[in-house]
Design a protein around this nucleic acid. Structure first.
Lengths: 209, 209, 209, 209
DNA sequence: TATGAATGAGTCTTCATTCAT
DNA sequence: GATGAATGAAGACTCATTCAT
């Protein structure tokens, strides 16, 4: 069947990108085979080359397409929160979904593996995803401090610490998510995280830093 | 010069393993070239095959050799601590060194990239390194609770949260450690982490969980 | 030109098998180069691997395809003969063709050379070709004895003796067939053989065994 | 241990040639490994190169040494026979030993396999062994004819026919000699052969050719 | 002399990419 | 537009040969 309309083409393109995400995540960039990607999208090798010039081109298109997902939405959602504590709680609620349902962890895995082959992609990902995420957290913290809600020594480093369990969980999920003894209750984990953050960051009278 | 004694051979073997660590970390298992590994150790391709039967054999030897480094020492050190807080502080002191000076982060990067090609290695690493690390933290926490020092809801999940910044920092270090704007002051980061942990976990009278 | 239909593919496959027969016969299995085989069939190395998974696979396909040639026809032809003498004469007529025109001698040469690498192939060849041939001769002899035509002490051993000149001639042909001083008049040779067989095997009244 | 005397050197040389015969016969020239040959002679690879310049040199030395065995003795023995029939009977007696105990069949196997790589060796073998053998038989036949003992149409072709079962048996022996169902009673076979030859070749009054 | 560590040319095999159909 | 047959560059691995010890 042929894709004549633009929508049909976009559909094929998307199917190929999805297939590429799967194959690259499973095998890594070097070991993934173009034929397998095409087959996974129910297309032929030749057709793949109608949509992407080369393996590298496909890889970069993949990162471009998937790397900046609903981050905007999350950003908006969190920024609108009336209090920093609520914002952190929202984070805790969103994290499991982001890890279990979005392509982000698999993409991160690929990028980690190929960071030396494609340093500009690793940089792009850092700036547009991780540092942006840390920036959001940091501004939440800074707002909390301004409002006298929180007590935070170094908002940038603190944001980094807060991201830690997310990265660990993302890596864990792509590596062991499908093993029977690798499952972790992420809802519980991030709820606990939120409670600890409250205990650690909320301003108190009785105890000096 | 030729390696005739067993010590000289061990030296060559080590040199090859070091070279392999570098190449695998830089390019990933599939993209690394045996000849490059040999050259990096100032040996020829053929010599490499005198020491390792195949690329896969070399990879597995690499994991076997480098995967369980001074973890024993750390374990002993931490277990001997008189109080849980001191143990966590010791962790905070050791973490930067482990991340910046040991081969663990680079090894972790390789294993993340190849987890689907070598699931048994990913499992080995999980059990012998990550879960072991989390286990140590957990027993520290449990001792702290027993002594009435700490207040911990779920020691296993808490240990996982505590590992988070370590994993993030390790990944960050291998990906961006050599970039000018990628440097992070790990001493400061983990000192801060230790302080937050104290605030979050130390038992208080005045505030219910 | 590209082989798109099944027939065209079969043609390529045949061409590759023919080329393989030539190269293996000339150099032996180990010394034959896959690229040379492909080139001899006017194809590239890569294309050869579209048709055969490996060198060994190609070798086995070669034996499967060429090893049991018109043996069925010969068997039928000989079995239908009204008398044993005629059957032996027919043999004598067919032998030169089998040696000079069929792939059997070259195939035998390859199999002799590789009998230790591929003992199952040597066994296959023995059972499906040599012992089958000897079996036909033997049954001819036994029929001749039953009919009172021949006097044969040990039909199995006698069949083996009768095969002797065929094997010698086959080996000779592949080794020296193209040398000026290596040519042998096979028609004459096997006609003479048939006459000797008549003298040796035909029942006589005047002379006891 | 070092071979200082000439005899000791000759011993090493012989051991290497024996080992080479075994390895070349088992694997063929291309697939045989110099290291395996050395090891089979309980020597090191380096030592092998003290005795033979190269693999090819070793191969040629092997043929030179083993190709012309006790053929002289056989030749003398047979030539001295008072009658052609006795000479043929002697042949029948010697054949099994030549096939089962001498290196000739294994050597023949190697030479068959490598005839295209080393055509000069195949030629050498033909002239110095096969044609010489056939020549002896032929002169026996011619003497028999002169003496009125035998009736032979074409002594050269007849000699070739007589050699047939020897070649078949030699090939059979190296290919299947060690298989349980590959054993043949060579004494019986060649005794039978001798009887058939007598019936076929002895001059008779009663029957015209 | 004897050894076996070291080398690198040579071969099998894979797979990104091209292109005839 | 779509296909998959064809290609050949590239990389793992082997092994004859060399040479330091």
């Amino acid at each position: 069947m042929r894709a004549r309309t633009d929508e049909a083409k976009d559909l094929r393109r998307q199917a190929l990108l999805d297939a590429a995400l799967d194959e690259f995540a499973e095998r890594g960039f070097a070991a993934a085979r173009m034929e397998d990607i095409a087959r996974r999208a129910d297309l032929s090798k030749g057709t793949l080359y109608l949509y992407f010039e080369s393996k590298e081109d496909l890889f970069k298109a993949l990162v471009d397409t998937k790397a900046a997902p609903r981050l905007d939405e999350i950003e908006a959602l969190v920024t609108e929160m009336p209090s920093a504590l609520e914002a952190l709680a929202t984070f805790a609620q969103l994290a499991p979904m982001l890890i279990q349902r979005s392509p982000v962890p698999r993409l991160a895995k690929i990028i980690i593996g190929e960071s030396n082959q494609f340093p500009e992609i690793a940089d792009f990902y850092r700036r547009n995803f991780i540092e942006r995420g840390m920036g959001v957290i940091r501004s939440v913290l800074e707002q909390g401090v301004e409002r006298g809600e929180l007590e935070v020594e170094d908002p940038a480093l603190t944001a980094r610490l807060i991201m830690g369990p997310m990265v660990l969980s993302a890596v864990w999920h792509v590596l062991y998510g499908d093993k029977p003894d690798g499952r972790v209750d992420l809802e519980k984990l991030f709820a606990l995280h939120a409670r600890y953050l409250r205990r650690a960051l909320v301003k108190r009278e009785d105890e000096p830093t």
